[in-house]
Design a protein around this nucleic acid. Structure first.
Length: 796
RNA sequence: GGGUGAUUAGCUCAGUUGGCUAGAGCGCUUCGUUUACACCGAAGAUGUCGGGGGUUCGAGUCCCUCAUCACCCACCA
């Protein structure tokens, strides 16, 4: 740091001044690039690509978890790559940009596909830049030079190759199927991209002549192909094989038997509308019923009597009900609250229609995924998501992968045109030239649909590493850790495993860490629309990025929601300041030329603090390696504040061991660096015993052995030391020691009771019994020591 | 309808294969301090670990059951 010479730190840590300087030091040193010892196991994280259509949200802050893992691995000397990227987010981005256009009274149709694509690209690049600068200011040490985007040409090429291969292996098909259709987006979506909301509607009972039919969708009666009843339903058994009559149009339809029908539901007779209901579609398939569409892609009525044609679904419902009523065919109307499907991005009610789309047959492709997960070739944190993933994989339906968007990766298909467009053969080719080369000259039209954005992003781990630089794939695939939000386990994580296994024969990551939702103190999800989401930049400006990072990683555990609020962040700001001041104290006292690695243990206090540090090194190392970030952070917090600051430094004021003091600071900086990279690096830059950058320094090892007996001795001494400045010090101490004594006596009683319990001695593992005996002996000794101490104090 | 999670101090939450006297931060009470730090220190109060049952020498931790809340999937004639 240029402004202050080494060894002199300002009184209060100022994140706003330090953070940009530290970022620059890392950048200049190229510290985020993979380095490390090639003999060691590589560590690689592929960053979940944020959607490049808006500013960062609270979930993105959780990437802190990945940075902690990455920074530890880097310090452990492993070749370490955190590969960043962004996602074009297909339909979603298109929707966001169309809203922008609408503000200026325009629609995408005013621009046309090419101009629209150009504008959305510019829009996306703008947001990408702001997302990246947000990530950088969070201290995320990803290798930004390798940044990938889902619309990069080389990525698209990988996606195309995989599609072509899937097609030739028979996993891809094109067909007319019933799909969830969003009339607003004019696109089909799989179930997983729909949500359900409750709506107040009505249940109408209609007169079909021979039977009565209950329905919530009277406007679809014109699409009925049959009436179905349960074959075991005696009320209707005589009617099977006869006909019912659709009111208003007086069309006769067969009455069929199908065991799907629930005799208890509605009237027990079901109108079968294969073109607009999933279950009816299945029934229709079983009985070869005609599929009559009455709702088109814009959500308007077609193939219906003139008076209803062109109406929107809900208007049509009103009109049909009115007509039924005046025709005397409406038996009853009852209010009903039921849930309806909406598109999760734009909240438009979903229509079920039959549409020609591209599908991926998932059953076969999922089987290797199920096997791999069952064999624990990938570990889930928390483990319960293993079962969750398996449940989903076992029941996933074929995945509709085509979207009629203008913003995305065009499906690499051409149609050789003929006189009848319905008969045009489709041909798989990346470009028209390729199509001509393979299939001969002719008139070609291109497929206009694009891939579902998850189709490309689910290939992210290998697609990025194959294109990020020479040797990256060989060195870093399969990757070490995939950490992302739990709500995209099905949409993304399981599909990445599926594509990974299909394309590379390997699970693309060894560990999956799923975080929960970031909430406020009341458990409400943080969101701008709810007004409880503060711009992280404002938080970091006030409290420092390190404080925010600690608030995000401590007290929040895998799979659970975590609350984040000002008081919590403030608490970790205080921690940072504590660390800063410990450094100020140590750096002001330690004489030049001190080498912390050559420190010697001289006093019981020295043994005590080394004892604390050694066990902290052990547990922090283990906890980060096993993704228990919260535990690791807690340990560091306690070590710095309770052990080093409150006890060892207080003791040092009387009887200093400077080299060891320096060692304490040195070690705590290393341990805390993954959590609080900025402040630890800022202090590191001011230490006089090194000129390196902390980010590239080695992870702490245990280098001093401490004596437990001496450490214990200090436990008693410390009470005297820290209260030495108090008035009535002796009295306070004696009181405190008496309390300690009572606790010890109680402990002795409990241990004695245990040891007297013959079944405990007989059944408990010998190590536990041994430990209990040792504890008992120790308690006896401590009680003696304390009694002596108290005697001394009270007599003086 | 099926599933998962949560329930631990006033609040927000830790507690990794069952094993030291159940913890932390914030808040609260009392006292103190100004050359590391009021973004501070010392001392303190607060818990039938949601209820009930079981397994075990030993349960916050494992099993069963009930309750409340949250989420996910499916269905909704």
């Amino acid at each position: 740091m240029e402004s202050s010479s080494k060894n002199e730190l300002s009184k209060v840590y100022e994140p706003g001044i330090n953070e940009p300087k530290i970022s620059k030091i890392w950048e200049d040193a190229d510290a985020f690039k993979p380095a490390g010892d090639p003999a060691k196991e590589p560590f690689c994280v592929i960053m979940p690509p944020p959607n490049a259509n808006g500013t960062l949200h609270a979930g993105h802050l959780m990437y802190t978890i990945e940075d902690i893992a990455i920074r530890q691995a880097r310090m452990q000397g492993r070749p370490t790559l955190w590969l960043p990227g962004t996602d074009h987010a297909g339909i979603e981005t298109q929707y966001v940009y169309e809203k922008e256009l609408a503000k200026q009274g325009q629609s995408r149709f005013d621009l046309g596909p090419d101009e629209f694509y150009k504008q959305v690209m510019a829009f996306t690049k703008k947001h990408q830049a702001s997302a990246l600068s947000g990530f950088k200011s969070m201290g995320f040490s990803a290798d930004w030079s390798k940044l990938k985007f889902t619309l990069d040409e080389d990525i698209i090429d990988v996606v195309y190759d995989v599609f072509i291969s899937l097609h030739s292996d028979g996993h891809v098909y094109r067909g007319n199927r019933i799909v969830n259709w969003c009339p607003r987006c004019q696109a089909a979506f799989p179930d997983i991209e729909t949500e359900h909301i409750d709506r107040d509607d009505a249940m109408y009972t209609l007169d079909y002549g021979t039977v009565q039919i209950a329905t919530t969708r009277p406007e679809t009666i014109f699409a009925d192909s049959a009436v179905a009843v349960n074959p075991k339903d005696h009320n209707y058994e005589l009617l099977v094989g006869k006909t019912a009559t659709i009111p208003l149009v007086d069309r006769a339809i067969p009455i069929i038997a199908d065991s799907y029908v629930d005799p208890q539901a509605g009237t027990g007779a079901l109108k079968v509308t294969p073109a607009h209901d999933k279950n009816d579609y299945e029934i229709g398939q079983r009985h070869s019923l005609p599929e009559i569409s009455v709702v088109d892609e814009e959500g308007k009525m077609i193939n219906v009597p003139q008076e209803f044609a062109g109406l929107e679904v809900l208007e049509a419902r009103k009109a049909v009900v009115k007509a039924l009523d005046s025709a005397g065919k409406l038996v009853s109307t009852e209010p009903l609250t039921h849930s309806i499907a909406i598109h999760d991005r734009c909240s438009t009610p979903i229509e079920l229609i039959i549409s020609e789309q591209w599908f991926l047959r998932v059953k076969e492709l999922n089987q290797p995924v199920i096997d791999a997960i069952e064999k624990d070739e990938v570990s889930f944190y928390p483990t319960r998501y293993k079962r969750n993933a398996l449940n989903w994989l076992n029941q996933e339906h074929d995945w509709c992968i085509s979207r009629p968007g203008w913003w995305g990766i065009r499906i690499p298909v051409y149609y050789k045109t003929s006189n009848d467009p319905a008969k045009d053969a489709y041909l798989i080719a990346k470009t028209e030239a390729e199509a001509v080369e393979y299939y001969g000259a002719g008139n070609y039209r291109t497929e206009t649909d694009t891939f579902d954005t998850w189709f490309s992003s689910s290939q992210w781990p290998y697609a990025t590493l194959m294109t990020s630089g020479k040797g990256d794939f060989e060195q870093f695939y399969p990757t070490t850790l995939m950490a992302t939000a739990h709500e995209i386990l099905h949409k993304w994580v399981t599909r990445m495993i599926m594509f990974g296994l299909y394309t590379t024969k390997q699970v693309p990551f060894k560990n999956v860490y799923l975080w929960g939702t970031v909430t406020d103190e009341k458990g409400q999800k943080l969101s701008k629309s709810k007004g409880n989401y503060e711009d992280p930049m404002a938080i970091t400006a006030e409290y420092g990025t390190d404080a925010l990072r600690m608030a995000l990683s401590i007290g929040i555990t895998a799979g659970n929601n975590g609350a984040i609020y000002n008081e919590k962040i403030q608490g970790y700001r205080n921690f940072c300041n504590k660390l800063w001041n410990v450094a100020r104290f140590v750096l002001a006292k330690v004489p030049p030329g001190t080498d912390p690695s050559k420190a010697e243990l001289l006093s019981p206090a020295d043994h005590w603090v080394i004892n604390k540090i050694n066990s902290a090194i052990k547990s922090v190392t283990r906890d980060i390696e096993s993704y228990h970030f919260s535990e690791a952070g807690q340990t560091i917090y306690t070590l710095l504040w309770n052990d080093i600051a409150d006890k060892y430094i207080e003791y040092s004021k009387q009887s200093p061991n400077y080299a060891l003091l320096a060692y304490c600071l040195d070690t705590i900086l290393r341990l805390a660096h993954p959590f609080a990279p900025f402040i630890t690096e800022a202090i590191w830059q001011s230490t006089m015993w090194t000129d390196s950058n902390l980010i590239s320094e080695h992870w702490p090892n245990i280098i001093h052995k401490s004596s437990t007996a001496q450490a214990k001795q200090f436990e008693i001494e410390i009470i005297k030391v820290v209260s030495a400045n108090q008035q009535d010090a002796n009295k306070v101490e004696a009181l405190k020691l008496r309390r300690e004594l009572a606790a010890k006596q109680n402990q002795l009683k409990l241990t004695a009771a245990k040891l007297n319990n013959s079944s405990f001695v007989a059944n408990a593992p010998s190590a536990i019994v041994k430990a209990e005996k040792a504890r008992s002996k120790q308690a006896e000794q401590t009680i003696k020591d304390l009694e002596v101490e108290i005697e001394k104090l009270e007599s003086s």
